[in-house]
Nucleic acid binder design. Structure first.
Lengths: 148, 148
DNA sequence: CTTGACCTTCCCATGATTGGAAGGATTACA
DNA sequence: TGTAATCCTTCCAATCATGGGAAGGTCAAG
């Protein structure tokens, strides 16, 4: 199977397959005489594993660890769980940051008439010397959900 | 005021001030005979505006638009509001994506014993051929909140 | 006058991904 | 068999906002 086929079968682009090879996430493949990379079904399986991990937002570095644990039949599940929960806490921190931004902006936009007049609380807030108003975590969380 | 002072006063690093100048977000400043950049209080005010917009996650391109609207006394507030709400919807889309990742991972981790045994539903899920289980938007949202 | 703290420009790195150019290989079809 | 289309290869560049650092000039305090 050539790289294009492996890409289609795994959902990882040919570009990314070459990149993953270049950084050592996947090993160098067998080549044809002409230099074409050749992939097995097992390789495609690994690529799919990688893609699913990417879809869950894991970094390439974390994926390398996950792949290595996946291959290790003696692994301890706590090592996998630790990576996963570590990533969850990073995701949750990012979520909270974005929710605070969204909530602040929504509050400002709600108070902006949004017509042809120049008066605008959004710009006033950006131009203000006061700290940005944060509407509290719980507040931000639920107001961010309200319109989602 | 030199760039270091302007950086401290605005919260924008000297590196970023030079970068913003290089991409045209802020105009080239007056220089001393020795070539040092000189900043006024007004410049610092603009830098602070930029920093606050960055803190709300606006892109440099959007900030350029916001700064230009800020300077325009004839602006229509709807133009500002449009940028803000556009950004809110981008933020909310990202939030939902991250929430789905976090929720999926938490479900998987909850079913992982996390001990020294090798059995691990997280790896099994990544290695599976089935589509990643998405726990539904509402489900994902509230389960993401539960532990946050 | 020296020392340390600033400033300047320039280049490089990040992370994951995409785009493209130049050139060789393979395949399909007339 | 010729040829055109579609693959493949490597290499370089760009994204986005930011930081690190080198080499060298400037300024202020002692």
């Amino acid at each position: 199977m050539n790289i294009g086929h492996a890409a289609a079968a795994s959902g990882v682009s040919a570009k990314m397959i070459r990149y993953y090879e270049s950084i050592g996430l996947i090993p160098r493949t067998v080549r044809t005489e002409a230099g074409y990379r050749v992939y097995s079904d097992q390789d495609v399986h690994t690529l799919r594993f990688i893609r699913r991990a990417r879809d869950l937002g894991f970094s390439v570095e974390q994926i390398a660890d996950l792949v290595s644990l996946w291959r290790d039949r003696e692994r301890a599940s706590k090592d996998v769980k630790a990576i996963a929960l570590d990533h969850v806490s990073v995701l949750e921190r990012k979520i909270r940051e974005l929710q605070e931004m969204a909530s602040t902006l929504k509050h400002l936009a709600e108070n902006c008439s949004g017509d042809s007049r120049p008066h605008c609380p959004i710009l006033e807030e950006l131009a203000s010397e006061e700290p940005l108003p944060v509407h509290g975590k719980a507040d931000a969380r639920f107001s961010a959900l309200r319109g989602a």
